[in-house]
Design a protein around this nucleic acid. Structure first.
Lengths: 251, 251
DNA sequence: CTAAGAATAACTCAGGCTGAGAATAACCCC
DNA sequence: GGGGTTATTCTCAGCCTGAGTTATTCTTAG
């Protein structure tokens, strides 16, 4: 133990192999009624040709969250007000020694949520970029530990829908209850009871507030015009909008 | 934008000022019916004399979680089976450029929970070490952004008690329902209805399982012998054991 | 123009869970 | 033995949920 302490006292990171810190962004959106994640195709080794999360080195003097927004903006071409509306939150950090073959790289992952975004600007520094439906993810070759990071991000997103008004970030400024329900169904991956969902959404204080207006037309396949709502001022949903229990996840 | 891309293409972190990655551990335990956090007193600048979370540089070839366990073990003197029983989980990462005056240091914080631990081994490399009651924290001078990290850890702990059997990590192998209730009351900071808590704990599948035994004696101030329980096999509590709503936190 | 189909929104109802209070019984200390 | 304390169990009203139904409005096919 004394050796241990002597070692520590003299421990200077500058005397050791350099390390680097990157941010990776799990950007989720809903397009074509599917949950999709933003991926870029790597042009250079390692993992050339593989798909990866947008991300890159944190610059000197740059905050972590700022780095995440920058990387996201570079791939999507988003800026200004539309970018400010995108929700960002820190997800987790990944630092297994061999996760990148080049050197020791720690990655701090961020989660981003946005409503239906345009096709990414393919001409960025990373070659191809695209939104990929999560259903198509299993057959895609992913670089590094990015599959794991996406899975962690997904679980976070599903969980956050329960306790926060995050779902309102996936829809436009004004939306119908059915729009919101579609978000929950898409992210959670199974259908919800329309009547109960409606009752619940209206009963949670601060989740939505009515605009007084309705849609211009009924749904594409019929039905009355739906009332329009805006996101409310709640930061936490109480009581929460819980996913039906999945027995297999409990034990 | 082209300049941006050219910059990125040539971006090599090795050409930039070195960065370092540390882990910091928010270790929580319950002693004397109070929630306490492990702090060490810094011997050297910066922040010499200030109190800080135990932590240090992640070594080459060392995993993040392993680094957190190592730093925790060094300060507490714990090892072997007792150390394995301590619950660790990643909390969040902190990387504001000026959070450490020496250089750019990213810190990945871990949360540790353990039942009533002994006084830390004061003779470690960091000078004094002690468990500090959270109630005494506001008057203590803390180094770096460690106050913020502790706050984040606390909120995580409070929240995790709701959805996971984490509370069983704060008590011994065998415990009474009252022991468990004391954990919840201590961490959440307010009293709970004994009867309802009892009913709830026994009704959540997999939270606890009876041992058939009871305590040797009644409580110090009277009352019957209490039944003893062990932690069950649940990984998630369903339905959850929710904190009473705090209106002020919702909006 | 009309009928069929679809969706919104509101209502009903049984069952489960919660908070609050109370009852019962076992046990400590004096 | 008596008073105070605590574990455990009950009771009961109120709220919330899942499931199903109904009235109404609207689109589309024919």
């Amino acid at each position: 133990m004394v050796n241990e302490q002597e070692f520590l006292a003299g421990y200077d990171p500058r005397a050791y192999p350099a390390v680097a810190v990157t941010v990776d962004v799990v950007a989720l959106t809903i397009r074509d009624n599917e949950l999709q994640v933003l991926l870029i195709q790597r042009a250079a080794p390692p993992f050339a040709g593989f798909w990866a999360l947008p991300g890159g080195f944190v610059r000197p003097e740059e905050d972590l969250a700022a780095a995440a927004r920058r990387e996201f903006a570079e791939e999507t071409g988003l800026g200004g007000e539309p970018l400010r509306r995108v929700h960002f939150e820190q997800l987790a950090s990944y630092g297994t020694p061999d996760r990148d073959p080049r050197m020791r790289i720690f990655s701090i992952a961020y989660l981003a949520f946005a409503p239906d975004l345009p096709e990414p600007t393919a001409g960025s520094d990373a070659g191809a970029a695209e939104w990929l439906a999560l259903t198509a993810l299993p057959t895609r070759e992913l670089a590094f530990d990015h599959r794991r990071i996406i899975e962690d991000g997904l679980e976070r997103a599903r969980s956050k829908l329960e306790y926060t008004p995050l779902a309102t970030r996936f829809v436009g400024d004004e939306f119908t209850i059915a729009d919101l329900r579609a978000v929950y169904e898409t992210v959670w991956g199974h259908p919800l009871h329309a009547g109960n969902f409606h009752r619940k959404v209206l009963s949670v204080p601060g989740l939505v507030e009515g605009t007084g207006a309705t849609t211009e037309h009924g749904g594409p396949r019929g039905g009355p015009r739906a009332r329009l709502y805006r996101a409310g001022d709640a930061r936490l949903l109480h009581p929460a909008l819980l996913r039906p229990a999945r027995e297999e996840n409990v034990r």
